[in-house]
């Protein structure tokens, strides 16, 4: 699949924003739990959420060939994951506003719990929907697995958590508890990524594509000399070596470096490098997302001999 930069940015940044939102809600709930979260950082965080999610949403419209009809995308939420994502994304802003409002007004914990839970549910649902947009496609076997929504949710939570930690670290209090969660998330993400990466769903063959049970079919000619919409959209192939290289890059940036930073930072008092960890992690996930598309093979390419 052609890795469209707008979609890569959209999914990574809105994922990060939504993950961050979830942690902000939780952090603000348990300001004084095992790990501390300085409430004064809440609004900084919220501002980040707003920027990331909005940027993500804007960039998601960049790949539309006819954005003036984008508003119609909310109409088919009963059947389309893409529509659901849109509707929920739209819902997210008022919910988030409500929660911020309740926090701003230092409302009752119960109210903050309710509005916060709504935000969390909405954010998780959006992440899940985004994953399902891809996972529901039977035409792309590599995506058509639970790894996909799991990845979208988990990677959102993870990158969000690192940003959350970086923000939290600027405030008062001990954040090692959060760092431990971050560590767990990073490790879980790394495991999921290795699983997804190693996962080779059997791809249907050209024989399947054409419905020939016997013999072996090979392509003779595709019937057009130059590229078509189909070859442009689906014809992208990344070389194995390049994919392997980029994949190590994902491990390094998204997981290894952040883990090292988190581990080091847990034992330090200043914790100034957490921002760096978030940047690395996000960069790693951008590469992951690029590979997510680049390595996916659409079955229609079988007809083209690929």
């Amino acid at each position: 699949m052609k890795p469209a930069l707008s979609v890569i940015f959209f999914t990574v940044f809105s994922g990060l924003g939504l993950g961050l939102a979830i942690w902000l809600v939780i952090g603000q709930w348990c300001q004084n739990c095992a790990a501390a979260f300085d409430p004064s950082r809440f609004f900084t965080g919220a501002a980040f959420v707003f920027v990331f999610v909005t940027l993500g949403l804007i960039s998601s419209t960049l790949h539309l060939a006819n954005p003036k009809n984008a508003w119609r995308a909310f109409s088919r939420f009963r059947t389309s994951w893409l529509s659901r994502e849109g509707v929920l994304a739209l819902l997210f802003f008022p919910l988030a506003a409500l929660h911020i409002f309740s926090v701003w007004n230092a409302a009752q914990l119960a109210l903050r719990l309710v509005t916060g839970a709504l935000v969390i549910a909405c954010a998780l649902a959006i992440l899940y929907c985004t994953g399902m947009i891809y996972a529901c496609l039977k035409t792309i076997p590599r995506w058509h697995t639970w790894h996909t929504p799991a990845g979208y949710v988990l990677y959102g939570l993870t990158s969000g958590m690192l940003v959350f930690c970086a923000i939290a670290a600027r405030g008062e209090g001990e954040i090692n508890g959060w760092l431990r969660i971050a560590l767990c998330l990073l490790i879980a993400s790394a495991i999921l990524y290795s699983l997804a990466n190693a996962y080779e769903k059997p791809e249907p063959s050209l024989n399947d594509a054409l419905g020939f049970a016997e013999g072996r079919v090979r392509l003779l000619d595709v019937g057009h000399t130059h590229g078509t919409f189909l070859t442009n959209e689906f014809g992208f192939r990344v070389a194995r070596a390049r994919a392997a290289l980029l994949s190590s890059c994902v491990y390094l940036c998204a997981f290894i470096i952040p883990i090292i930073i988190v581990v080091i930072e847990s034992s330090m008092s200043s914790q100034g490098m957490l921002g760096l960890a978030a940047v690395f992690c996000t960069t790693g996930f951008l590469v992951e997302r690029w590979l997510f598309f680049a390595q996916a093979r659409h079955v229609v390419m079988r007809y083209h001999g690929a």
Partner: peptide, 8 residues
């Protein structure tokens, strides 16, 4: 598109 089927 044109294909070649062998071995059937």
């Amino acid at each position: 598109r044109n294909y070649e089927l062998s071995g059937d």
